[in-house]
């Protein structure tokens, strides 16, 4: 299946546009699997799926669906 990635902050140029629009991930795979498949997995701090935040400890249990929009952000603090 394919998901759409939304890479924010310093991650926004880590992948070519075509890859971001349709990133292949195994059917029935979890969000955790998706994150760990990325070349910058260690810099992903926050994730949301279809606009809802998914905390790190829930990523294993979160099963993705085809067409999901997954946003990823590096560690960040406000100011």
């Amino acid at each position: 299946m394919k998901v759409k990635l939304d890479l924010s902050g310093e991650l926004d140029d880590q992948l070519p546009d075509s890859a971001v629009q349709a990133w292949a991930t195994p059917d029935g795979g979890s969000l955790a699997q998706l994150v760990s498949s990325l070349p910058f997995a260690d810099r992903v701090a926050l994730t949301s799926v279809n606009g809802v935040m998914v905390p790190p400890d829930k990523r294993n249990a979160y099963i993705l669906n085809d067409g999901d929009e997954v946003m990823m952000l590096p560690p960040i603090k406000g100011g």
């Binding site: 902050g9 310093e10 810099r43 952000l73 590096p74 560690p75 960040i76």
Partner: peptide, 16 residues
């Protein structure tokens, strides 16, 4: 990584 983000986007990335 947080430093890299701040250099590149400032704090504005927080808005997303």
């Amino acid at each position: 990584p947080s430093r890299k983000g701040l250099t590149k986007t400032g704090t504005l990335a927080m808005i997303d």
